[in-house]
Design a protein around this nucleic acid. Sequence first.
DNA 1: CGTAGCGCCTGCCGGC
DNA 2: TGCCGGCAGGCGCTAC
Length: 287
Amino acid sequence: MPELPEVETTIRGLNNYLQKGIIEKVNVFRADLRYEIPSDLTQKLKWGTIHSITRRSKYIVVEIDNKNSTFTALIHLGMSGSMQIEKSPTRLNKHDHVEWVIMTSSGRYYLRYNDPRRFGCIVMQQGNAFEVLKSHKLTNKLGPEPLTSDFNSEYLVMKIHNRKSSIKQLIMNQHIVVGVGNIYASEALFLAKVNPHLLGNSITDHQAKLIVVMIKMVLKKAIEKGGTTLRNFVNSEGKPGYFQQELWVYGREGLLCKKCLKVNIEREVIAQRSTFYCPNCQYINKK
DNA sequence: CGTAGCGCCTGCCGGC
DNA sequence: TGCCGGCAGGCGCTAC
């Protein structure tokens, strides 16, 4: 579920409360997520200090110092995950799988990992965040962050110019650029006026420039709005995002295009994922 | 190497 | 009311 803006919103919330916190206890209620949570996680993290909470791609990256060693946890929210902070040990919600009890200078907090579908994961490896991201199988082949200058149109053209997949699939490919998921892929292509069916090898330099600009723009605006809440995404303080009000095409099948006001938004399945576009604004010019 | 398809799992919604 | 199909913000694995 969460794409880059929702994960970014989540880590900003966590950093508001948990900086330099000490992990007093870890409770694992259910370990069978995408990968089994290692059974020594509890013991290894106990009395560790949270050194940093950052984001890489859609992973929440938590670096923890403990005695003479450093560990880094990579937390992925999958399709339906979220993290929430409670100020008191309230009753657990359904699908709360892990809880960290964290003591900070402003008090004790209960951080819960909730994930109904359990497509998310929590993995941990010895080393600091940089070392683990560079070496871990899940993160060592990731493409550039979309909001950095490493992601530019020259790079994108280089990665897609000989690809036969659709541009929609390519911008969702985390080896090409990270963070773009199913909502923001449709939105960015709409803003760039590029039809999602177009193949990578047919994208012009001009279109690549627009795609890059629009990916950056849509992600930045979504972060400002606290992300998109379709069903149940809430940030770490339990509040929803507000970007769904600004969506041009996602989830608007059969509704009038808000830009051209001429035709209805269409939904088609591309690579097993719902794809929304305006057949007028994103018309394919066949020569 | 690139591409296509499957499967992991729970919940919700609409139609009958 | 209940059952069933379809759908859901991700991504790794496999086969070709």
